[in-house]
Nucleic acid binder design. Structure first.
Lengths: 131, 131
DNA sequence: GGGGAAGTTTACGTTAACGTAAAGTGGCGG
DNA sequence: CCGCCACTTTACGTTAACGTAAACTTCCCC
């Protein structure tokens, strides 16, 4: 009942469509620290979640350093007042950045919509000329 | 009355907070092609818009190659049917990617909200222990 | 007309995020 | 026992996106 599910590096690689090299690289950069059975890495569900976070960050254009910060922001911390204040500051910086990205995306979506409409129109025109 | 506004490379650099090196690099990569007066580059409002598009792409984590594609997608084209079909396909790929990014951002926003709440809670606890 | 300031080209340097290759270890089915 | 597969470490290679430095023209100002 307390058998926590674990993963090998190959399983995670297949699951998230990355190479094992990539996963080891993330560990090298201090983003992951799986258990070991002898030499072999054993990943917990927490490790799996961390990896998922990193890849989500990638999709949003974050560097690994940024993703590392984000992960640190999220996990519970017992700091002093100043550190907590600094943390809240960082969190709000990220939030502002995400707002900017939302704006950018919405504008781009509109433009792509336009572009598609024009392309379809161009096709219609072709049909007509053709007749 | 037909005096189209133009810009020097330095003006654009200051306006968008990038270096002139960066702007020349984009030209080298085929993303910009400003007029020349002698040696000197003269940028039109269209060039300025293109630069803005590139930087917006950057904020969303796009490579320069992707931004170049996006710019091509947006500007009017007179292609044949197959090319138009391909274009529409690409546009929809990008649209799907943007949807994924929207989802990612919303989840992340929620998590940062949680993180901030926990940080504030931790601060309150400090105050109380302190008393 | 000397000297900044802003423009130019050319070219080598740098960082992030892996790719790729070599060489070795551990389990396991036939 | 052998070969294969998945794992490991070490280390050099690669690409994108610029940074940085050198050496040069052009324009403007006093």
């Amino acid at each position: 009942m307390e058998t926590q599910k674990t993963y090998t590096i190959g399983e995670l690689a297949r699951a998230f469509d990355v190479t094992t090299r990539t996963i080891r690289f993330y560990e090298d950069q201090g983003l992951l620290s799986p258990e070991r059975r002898g030499q072999t890495r054993i990943y917990s569900t927490a490790d799996r979640t961390t990896l998922k976070l990193i890849l989500r960050g990638k999709r949003l254009g974050f560097s690994l350093a940024e993703s590392r910060d984000l992960i640190r922001m999220y996990r519970p911390t017992e700091d002093n007042r100043d550190q907590l204040m600094a943390l809240i500051g960082k969190i709000n910086e990220k939030r502002a950045q995400l707002e900017q990205q939302l704006t950018d995306i919405r504008i781009l979506q509109g433009e792509l919509e336009d572009a598609e409409a024009r392309a379809r129109q161009a096709m219609e025109n072709l049909e007509n000329d053709h007749v």
